[in-house]
Every structure is written in C-alpha cells, then in structure tokens.
C-alpha cells in the first residue's frame, strides 16, 4: 500500500479531481450544522477541517438514508419499479471519522444477516471510505474503549492525517489504492518525516480521550437487570425523543410506510427508533414496552447485550453523540458504570 501527501489548501482541487470518477460526499456546513452531503457546485460549502470534531448526523445517512424509496408504482403500468441502488456506482466518502467507519462494519452484520439487504449492501459495495483521523477528540468520545481509536484505520479504505499545512494520506485497501491512483497527479510523495509526524499525532490524540468504560461483563450483566428498578433513575428524566438513536452511527431500525397518491405511490422506509412509544405498539393497542423505562433499557441492552449475543460485537463505537446531544444528560457511560455496580439478588 502507498502513502502520499497533499497541501491542505488544495482540498477543493483534490475533491474536484475525485469527482471526475466518483460521486463525492464530504462534511458540509449547512446552516450552522456539519453534515455529510454530496459536494456540488453552488451547494453548501465544505466544512473547515479544524472547525468541527465530527458531523452532527453520522454518515450512516449516506448508506442508510433517513427516508429511502424501496419501489414506486403507477396505475396502469403493471408491476412495480424497484429503486435498488447500483452496486457498480463509484461513491467516495471523504473525511469520515474512524468511529463512523467502524460503525459500518457493525451494521454490515445486521444487513447481511438472515435477509441480505440490497439497498444497504449495494451502497456499501460502491463506497470508498476516505477517513480522517481525529486530532482533537470531544470530551464525550470514548472510542478507545470499544476497539477503536481516534486514528484507527482498520475500517477505512484510505486514512488521512491532518498535519497542519499538509495532509498525509495512506491507502489501506485495494479500493483505496484505486482511488488514489485516479487522483495521483494531485498527490505528492510522502517522506519518512510525515510518517513520524502522524505516529506522534496518533499517540497524542489517544491520550486526549478523556472518558472510558470497561465493557467486560456488561453483556452478561444487563439481562440480569431486566426487571430491576435500576433503569428508572435514567428513564425518569428521559424525554422519549429520537436524538440518541437517530444520531447513533450503529442504530439501524426502520419503519416501512406506503405513500399513496391518486394514480401512483411509493413504498419507503424511514428511520425509526425504539425510544418512541409507537415503535412497539401493537395493532391491538397493547404496548409491551409501555414506559420510557423499558425503552431506555432496550436501547442500552440492545447495544451492549442483545447485539453482542447475536453478532459477537458491541453495537457501539464510542462516538459520544448520544451523550453530547442528549438534552437531559442521559449518559450511556454513566448507565453502564452504574449497571456494573448494581447488586442483583440471585433468583430463588
């Protein structure tokens, strides 16, 4: 695999070069919010790399959009028109953080499980991830506790390090190699000093992570707390909104609805969240998770117990968004720490 550098001020040029062969998505500054979107002329401006730690909405919305048409139909045409994305398309995601890339590897397991989901998988196949290592993580980040790290390149195709005036670029997979070759005229050779600088940055960034959680024993402990009043101390102040789940890079629940007009319509899927009351409400009106206590329990237990039981990996990457954006300070690290401390009486 190869490594390169390019001048930071030439970032737009670089994206322009990429855009010749790829559909480029990057963090854009849209009315005060950093969010991934397609780089287009006349569209929102590129977010400055130094100005934000991570996008508000995780880039999961690129592979799993909040609202996605599954198929359309029109009266009289006979049959439906599926809208499955093309697996051969070339999409580049520029500036994704290592944690968000790790989340794709987790969600892959779910969307490739009993029923392979062509919508997600085709997009996943066509996407090249050009990651950007974190040099100044947030106070809510805890990626190092979940197998990741601010400069982890394991789940990326190309890893980038911001070295001030220059950006160091390292290809990790063949997909990434191919992309870098297509823009090689815009890149320069890297020197050993660059490598050294980025190794120093890795060490420094990891030391800046202020929060951590020891996940040992948590997947086994949480089911024992199923009926425990433990959850009430958090759910009592829960608003039941969708911030923590919508902004989670690994949350993947969706609802499917038909939108019908007079002569045509579509079936679409939209993000759903276990924090909403109607998520588990049955047609009869009965709700097996009647209060926010059960819903809070489900969110945490699904990430830290049910998902690891089914797929062998914790469905959390420690990006800290649910902590940072929660308006009532429901802090998943706090919940997990307290869950370990709770003593559970043995049945019988």
């Amino acid at each position: 695999m190869a490594d390169y550098v390019f001048q930071k001020e030439k970032i737009e040029e670089l994206l322009g070069g990429m855009a010749k062969n790829y559909e480029v998505h990057a963090p854009l500054l849209n009315a005060g919010i950093v969010r991934f979107g397609k780089v287009e002329e006349g569209g929102p401006a590129l977010a400055k790399l130094d100005d934000y730690s991570n996008s508000s909405v995780p880039p999961k919305e690129l592979l799993f959009p909040q609202t996605e048409t599954l198929f359309r139909y029109r009266l009289g045409t006979g049959g439906i028109e599926p809208k499955v994305p093309d697996a051969g398309a070339k999409v580049a995601v520029f500036g994704i953080r290592p944690c968000d890339a790790q989340a794709f590897a987790i969600v892959d397991k779910l969307f490739g499980w009993d029923y392979p989901d062509p919508y997600f998988q085709n997009r996943r196949k066509s996407t090249v991830l050009i990651g950007l290592a974190c040099s100044s993580p947030c106070s809510t980040c805890f990626c190092t506790s979940l197998g990741g790290g601010p400069t982890n390149d394991e789940y990326l195709d190309v890893a980038m390090y911001d070295l001030g005036n220059e950006i160091y670029l390292k290809t990790v997979t063949e997909k990434g190699d191919e992309l870098c070759k297509s823009i090689s005229d815009l890149l320069e050779e890297a020197s050993p000093s660059h490598l050294e600088a980025c190794q120093n940055q890795s060490k420094e960034a990891a030391s800046k992570i202020r929060r951590s959680i020891d996940t040992n024993g948590i997947p086994e402990k949480l089911p024992a707390l199923y009926d425990n009043p433990f959850w009430e101390q958090f759910s009592d102040r829960c608003l039941g909104c969708g911030i923590c789940t919508y902004l989670c890079p690994t949350c993947h629940c969706f609802d499917i609805q038909d939108e019908v007009e007079v002569f045509d319509g579509r079936r679409a899927r939209m993000w759903d969240t276990c924090m909403f009351e109607e998520y588990t409400r049955h047609a009869s009106g009965h709700n097996p998770r009647p209060t926010r206590k059960e819903r809070t329990r489900n969110r945490v237990s699904h990430k830290y117990s049910y998902f690891p039981t089914n797929f062998g990996v914790i469905a959390c990457v420690g990006c800290g968004r649910c902590i940072k954006y929660c308006p009532v300070n429901i802090d998943i690290i706090d919940i997990l720490e307290k869950s370990i401390a709770v003593e559970v009486k043995e049945a019988g």
Partner: peptide
C-alpha cells in the same frame, strides 16, 4: 435540516 427526532415536541 430537521431530522424529526421530535425532541422539541417532547
């Protein structure tokens, strides 16, 4: 921009 998390409502 709205993601309809309904936090403003709740």
């Amino acid at each position: 921009k709205c993601i309809r998390c309904y936090s403003c409502r709740n």
